[in-house]
Each structure stands twice: as C-alpha cells, then as structure tokens.
Design a binder for these strands. Structure first.
Lengths: 354, 354
DNA sequence: CCTCGTTTTGGTATCGCTACCATGTCTCCC
DNA sequence: GGGAGACATGGTAGCGATACCAAAACGAGG
C-alpha cells in the first residue's frame, strides 16, 4: 500500500502542534502537555527546556483538541433581557473573558420577560446544548425563567439580584450596605431634607436599596421625615418622581435616586425648574452606568464591578458543571463582591451649611 | 478500587454523539454528518429519518470535535478601544453571534489609542493565536494599530470607518448619504436657518457626515449660510458648540449634531436657555445610541445596524481566513449596509412655518 | 543488595467529528 | 450492452490534545 508523503489534509501551513514542540525539545508530547498545563512531576530542567521550545516555536495549544480530549468545552448560556446597554456591554466583556479562560463557549440568547418568550428562549438554549446559564438583571428576578431553566436541568447563576434567590447560585453586591453608605455620605455632607426615589417594585434590589436608605436615616435620628416617591428605574419615571419631589416646599436638599437613569432625570427636572446642581440640589444615583460620567455635573453614584461579577458568575457555572460531573455536590453559592462609592460633582454640602 | 465497566473517561453520562444518532437511524455516522451539515448527496428519505433521530435524541454536535476535525475553530480578535458602551454591547452581541455560527472563538482585547498600548495589545493577540481582528470605531481609524496588526500578518476588518481604509476590509454605512438624507428631512420640514456640529476631526466619519450635510444644503440652494461649530463627539463638546450656536441671533431653527451625545447636549443647553424642543428648536443626532430613546423628547437620528455590521465583519474575517487558506486571493472587500432615519419627537416644523 | 515508594517520563487509546476515498446504485445515451 | 456520469452511502484515518497506565530512574530503609 502506498502512503501519500503528506497525510495532512489541508495543504496550507499547519500550525505548531504539541508534537513539534516535543520533537524540538527532545521529549514526549505528554511531557510538553504537562508543562503547558502546569502539571506536577516534571523536573525543572525539562520544564525549562520545554518552555524554551514553546517560546521558540510560538506554540499555542489548540483549544478544540484540548476541549475534545478533556471533555471540556461545554456551552454556557447568557440569557439577557433588557438591561441598560452599558450594563450589558460591561457584562459581556467580563463573561466572555472568563469563558475564554475556561475554554467554554458562550451562547447569547435574548429574551423578553413573558412566559411564552422565556419558554422559547430556554428551548433554544437546550437545543444549543447549553448546560448552564448566567442570568443578568432583570431576568434574574423572574421566577418563571428560573423555573423554566431548572426544569431543563440547567445550572443557573443569577447576577446582581438584590436578594439572592434560594434556588440558584448568585453573585451580587450588597445593595443594602451600599445604599446605606451613600445615605450616610449625604448625611455627613450635612443634608437633612432628603428625597428618595424607589426602584421598580418587581426587583428585589429596589427594596434592598430602599431599606439601606431607611436604615441610615433611622440610625442618624432627629431628621425630618424623608420624602419618598415610587420610580421604575426608567428616565421617564424619574422625571415624574422628581416633578413630585420638587413641587412641594420645603424642597429637599438632596435626592437619592435608586439608579442613575432616574438620577439623570432628577437633574434634568431640577434644571428645568431653575435649580442648580449641586448648589441648590444634590443628586446621587446608583449603578455607575455610563450616563453617570457623561452628563454635567458628573453623578455621584455607587459603582458595581459588573465585568468582574459576570466573570465570577461564569467561573461559578464552570465549577458547578465540572464539579457536578465529578459527583461533587453543587450547593448553591452566594458570592458577594465589593461595591464602591464614586464621588463626582453632583453632590455637595447644602446651601444652608455652606 | 472499583473499575468502571465503561472505558469512558468521565464517569458522568456522556452526551449524545453522532454515532448514537447513526445507530438509532440505522445509517452510518458519515450520513448523519452530511445531513447535519446540509451536505448534498443524501436522499430525502434518509434525511428525514436522520433528522427525526436527531430530534428524538436531542443531538447537538460537539463543537470541539467538529472544529478539530475540520481544522476550524480559529480564534478571532475583537480589539476595542473606547466606544460608547451601548455601541459596544450591541457590537459584541452581533460579533459573538456570528462567531458562534462559524464555530470560531472570539477573543476580546481592550486597548488605548497610544502606540505603546496598541503594540502590547497586538502582542497579546498574537500570543493568543488570533488570526484575524475586528476593529470597531474608533480604533479602526488608527493607522498605527492597523500597521501593527498587519505586521503580525493578521486579517483585519474595520467597522464603520467613515471612509474605508485602503489597507483593510471594511463594513460601514454610507455616512455621507445618511447625513444628506437627514438634512433633506430637515429642509423638507421647512427649516432654513440650520446649525451643524461637526464630529471629531480624527475620524473620517466626521467628514463624511459634514459633506453629506453640505451637499444637501447645496442641492437645496437659496438658504442662509448654515452656522457650523466644531465638536468632538462628546457631550461636553456638544454643550460648548450649542452654547455658541445659540448665543447669536438669529437663532437656528434646527441643529444637526454629528452624533447623539452631542445632540443630547444641544437639548440640555436649549432647555437651559428656555428654548423648547422641538417647538423652538429642532435637534437631530446620528447613531441611534441608547441615549436617543432615553431622553425627552426622543431624538430623531440615524440608526446603524450595529449588531448586523459586527456580524458581517466576523463573517468576512472567517471567509478571508478560510478562503486564504485555500489559496483564494483575499482582496479587500468593502461592504456597505443600510442605515435608517428614525423619527422621534425632537424634530418638528419650525414655528414660522407652523 | 533488594524491596518499596516517589518522582519523572513515555506509550497508547481515545475524544467526536469530518476529509477523503471506495463502493455501490441508478440513470442515460451511444 | 456497457461505459460514463450523477447520486447515495459506508469505511478508514486522522485532527491535536489529554487520561490512564506502564515503565524507568532514583533514594531510602531494612
């Protein structure tokens, strides 16, 4: 039987494989694999030689082969609803980065918050061979979606749910503590007449933020009753709420909106009424979304490390899926990451205290 | 020590493979492969049977194996600088979707616009085994980065550069035509005293938009000279430009800002001066970025199909890389996609014409 | 010196899929 | 009738990596 000289299929220049490195370094492919993967049981000399060879040849492991051989390369889903675009983009960056690190594939799926739409989305994910799903807000609040996913035996990590759901893993910041901190900051500036705009009632984060605000007010004591309006996280709802807050004397000297979009609306409404921010009115928000730095004056707000949270969510998912395969019980983990109070120009001491 | 009866490596339940389907359908794995990949030379009966089996078993091809066998699964880079977040998120969605479709991996890399930073970023991409790169704006304008990438023998697709660079493939809208169309729209509403705010001079899109505006004005004829200010695509610069445009009588009745952020700034400045939009002043933007729909009144603007463009960019990259491997000459392709004029509330007939 | 355990290395068998070739069938047409 | 050609299917050999096991090298203790 005559064998063709080159068995290789595509005529083009093949990339460097583990065998090339092995030959070059004078060791077996296995040894190279161990070095590359940081395995133990390799002598220092060998390790050096191999790493040298890797660098010389510019070797980079073939992900497909690696995944195939090690039964990795699962697909993870990212089911997104209608978060603010800036949130989503940071989220995607973090998630994709982590996915690349773990060698898993990330499948995006968009989904409205109706039962029918979520059923369809879940079906598409299942069809796509997805084994775990990351749920950014606001989808993470939907019990329907979570149930739907669980019925399909998917692992779930919810991100930034105000209160972690009992039935899923979760990555979040401490909304309560963050809101409390922000409120304490306002009080420390000397504000006494406070206004607060609540977030959408169907998101648990809204209540946590509200509770944090109330707790700080309570702790401080001897303050006039803060004025509170209901908002829905949209610019429009912020406009309405601000209108009400600024219609009744005595005006608040500081307004804490439960997110940045509503805070931006407060600023717009304040300007419309001839109030200057921050001199006549301090405005603070929550989320540190893109708009916060892109309006004037810049918005003092709470920063969430969104990319990091997304990354951790993927990490948890991968750990759960791989761990689960080994039989390790996957108890739901709730992970809390640090937030940060970002001070910009929209907050200042009240006139009376200046 | 208990030995699993199965030779399979991981103890967990294996997923459905092509062989399972083949057995179930009573054909060979090859036939299944052909059906799944839409190959020709399969009889209709067989195709039906196989598809049936696929559905029954819930088969989903293993990407890793497929990539390995077909020498696909290249890595594509997405080098992003500092575009607006809403732009990036849509972009990512489109790019990731296309990447998934083609079975290629998408590697994200962030990069400032300095030569040193771009060199580092390119090196990281090369080290990551990336063979092609998508360049969203504003990085796509950087000749430094393009040169750097080309030196590393990468394929490049620039997205949304105003004028396609000669040395790279490109996906874009027709900025000239879009700006012209928008201007014609303003003229058709009856506006005669126009203001225009230019974009950042280091982006070719700025000039295309300006040219489109000028062309429409020229074609219309018999108009007072439009007033023009230089902007830099930022909210801040829009504020300054608007200040100048609204400081001199007679005021323009319509202002066309080269992007939405600046248009939003024009609205803010107009409100500050007690002008009502759109009754006293029509304001239009460009990009249909997130802010356009999230301010009041909603911004009339030009919509770019960002996700689609990102997807096409990846498509082109994949085609170039795979085509190039087959020896097909990869001439730089410039692809133009359709834009759309989105009318919202910020534009109306001028008072005088009402 | 030999056995035992630990470290270090290599060989072999896959992982799931597709490229490539071989092997049949059926037509069609001279 | 028989060869050419299109169509339909199956067999085999990898793709590039790792898992698993075997074997060699080494040191220590009896």
């Amino acid at each position: 039987m005559n064998k063709p000289a080159r068995k290789s299929r595509s005529g083009a220049r093949r990339s460097v494989t583990i065998k090339d490195v092995a030959r070059y370094a004078g060791v077996s492919p296995m040894t190279v694999s161990r070095v590359v993967n940081g395995g133990q049981y390799v002598s220092d000399v060998t390790r050096q030689t191999v790493m040298q060879a890797v660098r010389q040849l510019g070797y980079s492991p073939n992900l497909a082969a690696r995944n195939l051989a090690s039964a990795r390369g699962e697909r993870m889903g990212l089911l997104y609803g209608n978060p603010s675009a800036s949130y989503l983009s940071e989220f995607l960056v973090g998630a994709l980065d982590a996915a690349t690190r773990h060698g898993v594939q990330l499948v995006l799926e968009k989904c409205e918050m109706t039962p029918a739409a979520s059923r369809r989305a879940v079906r598409r994910l299942v069809a796509g061979g997805v084994v775990g799903v990351v749920l950014p807000p606001p989808l993470c609040e939907s019990a329907v979606i979570r149930a739907e996913l669980q019925a399909a035996r998917m692992r779930i990590v919810a991100v930034a749910a105000g209160r972690p759901p009992a039935d899923a893993m979760c990555v979040s910041i401490d909304d309560f503590a963050a809101a409390r901190e922000m409120t304490q900051y306002l009080l420390a500036l000397g504000h006494t007449r406070l206004g607060f705009i609540k977030g959408h009632p169907n998101q648990t984060a809204s209540e946590e933020r509200w509770r944090g605000f109330a707790a700080a007010v309570e702790e401080h004591g001897k303050l006039p009753e803060p004025r509170v309006e209901q908002g829905f996280f949209t610019f429009r709802s912020g406009l309405d709420a601000a209108g009400k807050l600024l219609a009744v004397e005595p005006l608040p000297t500081a307004i804490f909106a439960s997110n940045d979009d509503m805070a931006a609306a407060v600023m717009a409404e304040a300007h419309r009424r001839g109030l200057e921010v921050p001199n006549d009115l301090t405005v603070v928000g929550f989320d540190d979304s893109l708009i916060a730095a892109n309006i004037w004056p810049g918005l003092t707000t709470i920063h969430q490390p969104i990319a990091q949270m997304a990354g951790e969510a993927v990490d948890m998912l991968v750990a759960a899926v791989r761990g689960g395969r080994r039989g390790a019980a996957a108890e739901p983990v709730h992970r809390q990451v640090a937030h940060e109070l970002i001070t910009r120009e929209s907050a200042a001491r009240p006139r009376s205290a200046a």
